[in-house]
Each structure stands twice: as C-alpha cells, then as structure tokens.
C-alpha cells in the first residue's frame, strides 16, 4: 500500500489524471492532496473567510473531479483547477457586492471584520517563539494589505508572486489579455509598496 502511494507520488499530474479517468479513486485523492493547500490558500486570501474559503475549495475540487473526463490534457491540470477556483471566488465576490449594494447602498466588497479574520499557519521550520511572533505580525500585515487590493489585482498578484505562475499562464487562467495582467500586477505591487511602507527598516 505504502509502495503504491509512493509510486503515485512520483507521477506527473497528467499521469495521475489518466489513472483517475481509468476509474482509480486513489488517483482522485492524490490530486486533492496535491492541490488542497494552494487552492485553499488562494481562496482564503481572495474571500477572507475561512469557512467560505473551505466551501469554495470543496466546490472547486468537486466540480473539477466530476468533470475529469472533459479536462483537456494539453492544458496544465493546475491551471485548470486554479481557473475554476478563481471563477468561484470572483462569482462569490460579485454576488456579495450586489447583496451589499442592495442592503446598504455601499459598493465595498470586503468588510473590515472579515479583513481582520486572518489566521496564519506557521511552524515546523525551527523558528524561535520570537521569530514566530514577528513572522505572524509581518504575515498578518501583508495579508491585510493584500485584502485591501481590488479582487482582480489580488488574484493576479497572488498567482504571480505567491504561487509563482507565469504571466501568460495567469492571462489564460483569468481570461484576461496579457497586457491587462501585467498592468494589474504592476499596480498591485505599487499598492502593496505604499501600504507596507511602514514595515521597511
């Protein structure tokens, strides 16, 4: 059993997808294990609500895995998954914006208490308690700054500098022109520099 799991670990995403299409449940589980953290992190940073991010992550995987037969292998599996996740987040944020608009007449998508609801998972890297507190404080500041960006800037900057995706890949994932993606990322970095200027010492 451990041997089989190790063998699955060594396969590429495309190979695991082939096994899933051949009806192997363990291949489905492998795909969830590979991407649950990156997908959940992206969604959490997009919607700023743990429970909601968890629901949207589940939706993303359920939608992708139930449609595994329609996935086109010439497309990167992770790009496909991130595209579904991002669409889920943007749909949710648009709906919330509409709700807020109709209830309060305010166009702001992100509520302040939602912004505050940030909990970082740090540890297991041999940091001292002081390191952890500092990292938590710094991490918290950065997370709050990201939350203040416009959602489309947020998605772009997270995919580029947190997930390390190429500009072209982001453009394809978000259905945006390459030039727009570059502009969003440059503006997001400018915003973050301004918002985090007090941290530079």
């Amino acid at each position: 059993m451990a041997e089989r799991a190790a063998a699955l670990n060594a396969l590429t995403d495309q190979e695991v997808v082939l096994l899933a299409r051949g009806g192997q449940e363990r291949a489905y589980r492998e795909l969830v294990r590979r991407y649950e953290r990156p997908i959940f992190s992206l969604l959490y940073r997009m919607v700023r609500d743990r429970e909601l991010a968890e629901d949207l992550s589940q939706e993303t995987f359920v939608k992708a895995l139930n449609a595994i037969e329609s996935y086109r292998p010439e497309y990167k599996f992770s790009s496909w998954l991130f595209k579904i996740a991002n669409n889920a987040a943007i749909d949710h944020l648009r709906r919330r914006e509409l709700d807020t608009l109709s209830l309060e007449g305010s166009p702001h998508a992100v509520t302040p208490d939602a912004v505050e609801a940030t909990a970082l998972q740090i540890g297991d890297r041999g940091e001292t308690p002081l390191d952890i507190v500092e990292a938590k404080e710094l991490g918290g500041e950065i997370e709050r700054a990201i939350a203040q960006l416009r959602p489309e800037y947020r998605a772009c900057i997270l995919l580029r500098h947190v997930d390390g995706r190429a500009y072209e890949e982001i453009a394809e994932m978000l259905d945006l022109p390459l030039g727009t993606v570059k502009t969003y990322i440059h503006r997001a970095r400018n915003e973050l520099r301004r918002l985090l200027a007090h941290l530079k010492e």
Binding site: F40, E54, L138, I142, E143, V162, L196
Partner: peptide, 15 residues
C-alpha cells in the same frame, strides 16, 4: 521586498 514577502507567505491549511 514586496516580492520577497509575498513569496514567503505560508500556505493555509483546510480543516
């Protein structure tokens, strides 16, 4: 510095 901070952000873990 901004890029360095972003790339050092830890992954969040679902329940």
């Amino acid at each position: 510095l901004v890029v360095q901070w972003l790339s050092a952000l830890p992954l969040h873990v679902p329940a």
